[in-house]
Amino acid sequence: MSFDPHIITDHLDDIGNGFLVTLGTWSSGVVLGLLLGLVIALAQVFGNNFVRAPLRVFIEIIRSTPFLVQLFLLYYGGPSFGLEMDPIPAGILGLAVYGSVYFAEIFRGGFESIPRGQLEAADCLGIGRLRCIVRIQLPQMAVIILPALVNLVTVLCKETAVLSIITIPELTMVLTGIGSQTFAFVETLLALCIGYLILVEACSRLGMLLETRVGRFMQRQPQ
């Protein structure tokens, strides 16, 4: 079995594009997912029962079904609902919806971890609901939920590999494609593994950096 690193260098352009697609879908999915997740979390915490019940059903379904199945429904089943999408937008939307449910759970946990007493004090002092959320709850939550957020973002990075199945030309699809063409399975699969390990490690390093940064900011507040 021969090992030929030139396979990689020869196709650097394609691999680079695949990498960019991975990064693009990942970041778009995360941003959209964060927003959706925040909306869901707020709806759960502050919404009325008409909103909460169907939301609960939606969340359970998303959490119980595989990401791949959700992608299939969106991409192949979408047209039946009039939702005709290209692979990449479908992938981003799928990733966002999948992630939003878990983001929402993290946000909700964060909200509930702020002691009730602080909110009561704010209420007594006449501080309005919205102001309370923005000035008191969110800043404190940020430090507490950051590790969970970083972890979820890392998970979503790995899930982008699944996007290859609905023909999105991200890293996995590109490299396995090269592998089948040139029969250089060793080099391509190895490169794929290393690629993801780098992404995941970078993500967690960044996360730790953010945690110390935000934490430092929090420490200046009086206890």
Partner: peptide, 21 residues
């Protein structure tokens, strides 16, 4: 390694690469 590499990639590795190794 096993938490960092996507499961799909691990699966492909074991199914396609190992037989050739």
């Amino acid at each position: 390694v096993f938490r960092g590499i996507p499961l799909l990639v691990q699966l492909l590795f074991i199914y396609y690469f190992l037989p050739r190794a």
